[in-house]
Simulated scan of single mutants.
Amino acid sequence: MDLRQLEYFVAVAEERNFTRAAQRVHISQSGVSAQIRRLEKELGAELFDRSGRSAELTVAGEAALEHARAALAAAGAVGQAVGEVTGLLRGNLGVGMVIGCTVTPLFDALAAFHEAHPGVELSLREDNSDRLVADVRTGSLDLALIGAETEPEGLDSLTIVAEPLVAAVPAGHELDGNAVSLAELAAHPVVCMPSGTGQRAVFDRACAERGAQPTIALQAGAAQAIADLAARGLGVAILSRSMAAEFDELTAVPITDATEPALLALTWRPGAGAAARELVRYCCAAFRISVDQVCRSEVTAR
């Protein structure tokens, strides 16, 4: 029995299909099947019921799966421990980024990290902030750049930007040049981020606290799309102050009673591995944040 056989076994068990498992582990289906047969011969029991269209675990397979996963995790931990001692980071690192938010310093950090630690395979996924936080909690992601009302509880976090929301309108709009309250804003259609994003959560909470009921005319996940829609007169854009400043065709109008800032923050699990902690430090350098703040953040979160 070797780790390769266990890896193939787990892949088939999770995919419930030999073809998909073979694609996942990057070898031929016949190769996966042969290795599984050798493993079954060594164990003296069939691990899969192959009579149906999908590969279903037998009772023996069910009993073996948890132990196979544990063996693979233990083998990975051995490599990680040695890597930490020798300074050679290896493995996989999943990074999340809030959708519609192009943040150049994050890309700079990923590039610098990859150059310094080519043994770590990086993956980057966009999603809304709620799902990114959930995936960091479960370990599906190691680190995420999120938009939020507040830093997530139970996770280590570091705020990159904290700034208020504004209403952004084209020249000549009724609100152009004036501060506006949420009640006044409710008289106009609004274009904003969808639910599950930090900016939307901040906006919805401010409206609820003030009893304002704006009409959400259109939603988009990217600031550029929101700005384009607002510039065409389809609604008042709700954006963070720095986002609104990027669009010359719009004027940022302060919202007098939406004072809570929207956050852009890095978040990761307490006790994250060496690769994740190292990437946090690269992010700090790219965003020009003191590494001491990370240390304080970790202590506070715990």
Rank of each mutant, 00 (worst) to 15 (best):
L143N: 09
A144H: 02
A144F: 10
A144K: 09
G147D: 00
T150P: 00
E151L: 09
E151I: 01
P152L: 01
P152W: 02
L155C: 08
L155V: 10
L155H: 02
S157C: 07
L158P: 11
T159W: 01
T159A: 07
T159Q: 03
T159D: 02
V161I: 04
A162V: 01
A162C: 10
L165A: 07
A167C: 02
V169C: 09
V169E: 01
P170D: 11
A171F: 05
A171M: 07
A171P: 06
G172N: 11
E174A: 15
D176Y: 09
D176W: 11
D176S: 09
G177K: 08
G177N: 02
N178T: 15
A179I: 10
A179P: 13
L182E: 10
L182V: 07
A183Q: 13
A183H: 13
L185V: 03
L185M: 05
L185G: 01
A187Q: 11
A187F: 15
A187C: 14
A187G: 14
P189H: 08
V190D: 01
V191E: 08
M193Y: 12
G196R: 06
G196P: 06
G196H: 04
G198I: 12
G198Q: 07
A201Q: 12
F203T: 08
F203K: 05
F203Y: 11
D204W: 11
D204A: 15
C207H: 14
A208K: 14
E209I: 15
R210N: 15
G211V: 11
A212C: 15
A212V: 12
